[in-house]
Design a protein around this nucleic acid. Structure first.
Lengths: 283, 283
DNA sequence: TTCGCCTGTGAAAAGGCTGTGACCCGTCCC
DNA sequence: GGGACGGGTCACAGCCTTTTCACAGGCGAA
């Protein structure tokens, strides 16, 4: 099954809205061909990537589409609609979910919204309003992760180029795989912040982390290996026990220096400050 | 003008979900007393902090209320409604904005949403749906910027950063473990209030404290040790015999200072950066 | 002041989390 | 078909954190 999406006529540079740097990726789960047709035309003229699904698809398929939002008609989902909606919202927390369906009661709308839907629109509705609501939802969701389009990011000896999906030390590539790069990119763009594993997983993998999943740890190890090999004098990824990871370039100098310091474990007036150097004060 | 908000009856200790730890702070800009009354009652029973404004207020005033969301009736705004809405959305990007107003055209709704509103609800509407929509909006907004939006909390020489799960003195980390940090965070965000052990346990550990459990005491000791080591001139956690603990940064002046240690710098007294808790605290 | 409970403290045991290497699986290319 | 490669799972060892426990010191009431 091809997951390719139709891309509307991208009006060349300068066409789309002022904000939406990258086009919205939207799926429409609806079987009302007239409605779909009308909406589709507008999506096309806006240059959004979209895909129409006449019936519910497995969540895995939705995940692989890397959507920003999905508009779903509850009627299409059938009897399991509520449970599908719930699973949809909980396992793709980064996805905007809009229900667009026929007549409904207040209780139904409240239920849908409480299950995690971002908006509930009653059919018949004007396609332009639908689109405006999708925009509102994605705008809301994108806030905070929109630090794209910046030049290469430098930290320590490391240079991270988003445009190449690769990181470099002294001009030579680290040969990061896609996941490795995305993980490094996420960490580095939130430099200084501690990110919980669940958040990392959500933003790199795109859906909710299963309990007990160790993928993040494993990829952190792979990243550390490659970083260590090319930039042995620096430490970049720091573990916060019980929480997650934090990115901060740090010279690994003081390693085994131990200048006559007593082997006492508990730090005393010494120099534990090394843990969080001045990078913080500089923020 | 008092900015105090009404706080509804907080549901019993059994209720608080794992997420919505802190209640939503909401402002209602509406002059329809019947509508306001009905909504207000529901807000109260949910334990949300809310405030009713019968007419638009300067944005500065809204900012100082530290809101999560605002529900506004365009009709109340008068002729400058659109411009007010636009300024509202653009100057408080962390705020959820819901328009709840009478009959409107598609064009008006689209305009409002494009200006930055998160939702548009048509009156008359059921209060429960309104609340569910506010929840949907704040749920999304909190994701991702929950930690970063709240600036660091300062008390005495101490700086508490929620986004780092860590506390600092003069830029160097206290190396708090997760529990230690959560305990400190809870105490510091309820500065001045005496918290009973059971309450502390419930909110930090997430479940009811077993009779005779000393965990809270032990962690208070660990915290005090780390605080004392890095900030010897101050006392932060105070014991209330038979009750619990209270956080308040206090110079330890009266004590016999350690040799050579000057009293303190020009540190501003433990002036709480957040005026928010004080309104809530029954002190 | 004495007594009974409450809190502070140190250390050891228990429990959970992370680092790590090996292995499996699906895909792509030769 | 076979091999290389990326991605993901698993089990184990080691370490850090949390919890428990016993005892000492403090506080308040009678």
């Amino acid at each position: 099954m091809s997951l390719a999406m139709h891309a509307g006529a991208r009006g060349g540079p300068g066409a789309p809205g002022p904000e939406q740097a990258s086009p919205v990726r939207l799926a429409l789960i609806d079987s009302d061909s007239g409605f779909v047709h009308v909406v589709t035309r507008r999506l096309q003229s806006r240059g959004w990537h979209h895909r129409v699904l006449a019936s519910p698809v497995p969540l895995d398929a939705l995940i692989s589409m890397r959507l920003n939002a999905v508009v779903v008609d509850l009627a299409v989902l059938g009897p399991d609609g509520w449970s599908y909606l719930e699973r949809l919202c909980s396992s793709l927390p980064g996805l905007g979910v809009l229900v667009c369906t026929g007549q409904s009661t207040v209780a139904q709308r409240v239920r849908g919204l409480r299950l995690g839907a971002d908006d509930w629109i009653t059919k018949p509705c004007h396609p332009e309003e639908l689109i405006a609501r999708v925009e509102a939802v994605t705008r809301r969701r994108r806030r905070g992760e929109a630090r794209t389009e910046t030049g290469p990011l430098v930290a320590g000896e490391l240079e991270i180029r988003a445009d190449q999906f690769q990181a470099f030390v002294a001009g030579s590539s680290l040969d990061l795989t896609r996941r490795e790069f995305e993980l490094l990119h996420l960490l580095s763009t939130t430099e200084g912040q501690v990110l919980e594993r669940e958040r990392i997983y959500e933003r790199v993998w795109g859906y909710a982390m299963a309990h007990g999943d160790r993928s993040v740890d494993v990829f952190v190890r792979k990243l550390r290996q490659k970083l260590e090999r090319r930039s042995p004098g620096w430490r970049y990824i720091h573990t916060h026990f019980g929480i997650g990871y934090r990115f901060a370039a740090q010279p690994a100098d003081g390693e085994s220096q131990a200048p006559g310091a007593e082997p006492e474990h508990e730090e005393e007036g010494g120099a534990p400050a090394a843990d969080f150097p001045s990078e913080l004060a500089a923020r």
